[in-house]
């Protein structure tokens, strides 16, 4: 087929191998930073999805798909499950449904680790966004093939 992605560029391809891990790392940074500064699961998820879309443009569809290992909808499922389950811990301490719970863990050497249900909700959003965006992109690519 003439309309396939045959615009492969060596520069983009080489650049992607360097940029891709950085982008993924950056998306995680955004996710965790969203705790009390601009950032968060949604924007982090978009960056991560953009990184994988970049792989798609630089190389080809199979390699972008193999980067993910699973079907993007399964990622949506995991994300949605984490987000939905993060509403439940509040029930066990007798608070209203979906009330935010905060824990702090003392880990030797590293200091205090602050965990909370909003963080898990955000991780769920992060995975959900990655999955949704990639499902849309992959579906469009599959139609094209």
């Amino acid at each position: 087929m003439s309309r396939q992605f045959n615009m492969r560029s060596l520069i983009l391809s080489t650049g992607t191998t360097i940029i891709l891990p950085l982008l993924l790392l950056f998306s995680l940074f955004l996710l965790l930073r969203g705790h009390d500064e601009p950032g968060g699961g949604f924007i982090g998820g978009l960056v991560a999805a953009a990184a994988i879309a970049l792989k798609l443009f630089a190389d080809d569809y199979p390699s972008a798909k193999s980067l993910l290992r699973v079907h993007p909808l399964q990622i949506v499922g995991v994300g949605l499950a984490i987000a939905a389950l993060s509403s439940l811990p509040s029930l066990f301490v007798g608070d209203n449904f979906f009330t935010a719970q905060w824990w702090s863990l003392d880990i030797p050497i590293f200091g205090t680790l602050k965990l909370s249900t909003p963080l898990f909700f955000d991780i769920g959003v992060f995975l959900g966004v990655i999955g949704t965006v990639l499902t849309a992109i992959f579906t469009l690519v599959e139609v094209e093939h």
Binding site: H71, L73, V76, G77, V78, A81, A84, F97
Partner: peptide
């Protein structure tokens, strides 16, 4: 835990089951 959580169940149960069945696609 009181009974008011009952109101959330019809919403949260399908969400959780929907998510799980996406995982086992």
């Amino acid at each position: 835990m009181d009974m008011s959580v009952l109101i959330a169940l019809p919403v949260i149960i399908p969400l959780i089951f929907g998510a799980l069945s996406l995982v086992v696609l």
